[in-house]
Nucleic acid binder design. Structure first.
Lengths: 87, 87, 87, 87
DNA sequence: AACGCATAAGTAAGAC
DNA sequence: GTCTTACTTATGCGTT
């Protein structure tokens, strides 16, 4: 039923599928690497006497700030659009 | 209590703290970028007729520990039987 | 564009708008309360020796449409075979 | 291995399990009901000429506000604790 | 009716 | 070892 218009997408043995799987796995490895780096930085901060938990909260707040700002801008745009005003 | 050995590591005006915050934020942006790339690949796969949900599950299974999975499935069967649920 | 038929429905000082906002917020609180209750029941089950994770899965399966599930599993098998992954 | 201390929790046929399942399912129905109510309110608002999307964003922002406040308080407590100060 | 977004569920890691 | 918190995945909702 699914994908009736593209016979390749219901593979019996499919290079395309493998290619996608590999690309994704590669990117996920990269992501895991970045994660590990972040972890290391926290460890380093801890080694320099900082309280990791506090540091994390601090960063979380900064992020929340940014998110909130973005949301507000989105709302403003929405209002403007609803009112037919150009920004 | 914390950080008795390093009096500099207190909140307040602190270059070191700022440096750590910035480094972490930079890495988190990078991570977000990689995430976005992954999302794109899935979109591309979808555009080629693949079922994204299934593709994700496949990749998850590849990296999942087989033994743990088997154990949980066995317990689930047990519960299901006890609750009169057909799997 | 929007709301041409009801001039009152514009942002700004608007009792009606506030009323809607409050009603929704009230309901969302209620929802959060129910959520909390569910969480408690799981805790209680856990206290009685049940595996929460498996219990959740059981309940999820009960409400999932059987046909849809079967379809997805079939597709997953297909992909797995094509990708050379053992299930 | 699991739950060795409570033989009832690995049931062959178990009233207790069924009771938990039913309680949870009941609560989830209730939750779904509340969800439906919320949906209805949005529909009503729309019927009164309000832009649903804008309304949602507005509520989201109010919630973010509250969350942010809570986070800030948590951070403050953390600082106070780290500094050995009583609030 | 398909797409993308937003919330909610489920899973896994980290702190105490 | 438990318990909370963060991240990932999944579902549902509204839109085009």
């Amino acid at each position: 039923m699914a994908n009736a218009e593209n016979p390749r997408a219901v593979p019996g043995d499919n290079k395309q599928l493998l290619a996608f799987v590999e690309r994704i796995e590669r990117m996920e490895e990269e992501k895991a690497g970045v994660q590990a780096d972040i972890k290391e930085i926290y460890a380093e901060a801890k080694g320099n006497g900082f309280n990791t938990k506090v540091l994390k909260k601090l960063i979380a707040i900064k992020k929340q700030d940014a998110d909130k700002r973005a949301e507000e801008e989105a709302l403003l745009e929405l209002y403007a659009k609803a009112a037919g005003v150009f920004l």
